[in-house]
Nucleic acid binder design. Structure first.
Lengths: 95, 95
DNA sequence: CTTTTATTTCGATATTTAGCTAAATACAAA
DNA sequence: TTTGTATTTAGCTAAATATCGAAATAAAAG
């Protein structure tokens, strides 16, 4: 859980997670969204992998990253629960 | 919000927040709970103050720190909501 | 006014982190 | 098998962070 919070402490990495929320994306696609070099992005992907927040699958020359939602959810909600936070009710819930 | 996640990235600081969840505590009381020096703890308190997660009140020679729950809640649940996490239903909720 | 107690600031050091460029690797295609 | 494309690794620097002991500050007590 420490590694998860460490991973979340960088805004670039948080944004990567948000992007992956929609669909898996390749290292290249992700890198395009940020004003930093590809090696730097690769290092960020590694931190996220170490924290088990994403996983990687190689297909030919490309590597596709996928969000591991449950790990993120457990860390975030687990910590939130310690403080007794209730989530805001969304429109979705009310349907 | 970046400063909040930065603040949460250190286990000592997360534990300080957990301790303050029960009641406000002085710098000294908090420091006793950790195997680091008082100056180091003071630096951690500063990071938490910068992130607006705690506030300080001086009474005589002691300084009492208090958790600012709403700031923590907004950051945590705000981020969780981006991912559509629903919090686990607690026994409390069901009462 | 001097001493004691609680806490913070200062100054130094060690470690970690984010970033870069250049080089290496892994495949696919020609 | 050479070339091209995608990505990672290596090696580096600069900046940020965590830590310490010693000194400074703030307030109360004697």
């Amino acid at each position: 859980m420490n590694s998860v919070f460490k991973a979340l402490s960088d805004p670039t990495r948080r944004k990567v997670l948000v992007l992956l929320r929609e669909r898996p994306m390749t290292a290249g696609e992700l890198s395009e969204q940020f004003p930093v070099s590809r090696p730097t992005m690769s290092a960020h992907f590694n931190v996220l992998k170490e924290a088990d927040l994403i996983d990687a699958e190689r297909r030919g020359t490309t590597v596709t990253y996928r969000l591991k939602l449950t790990v993120l959810e457990d860390a975030l909600l687990g910590f939130a629960q310690v403080f007794g936070f209730k989530p805001p009710s969304s429109k979705e819930d009310e349907k």
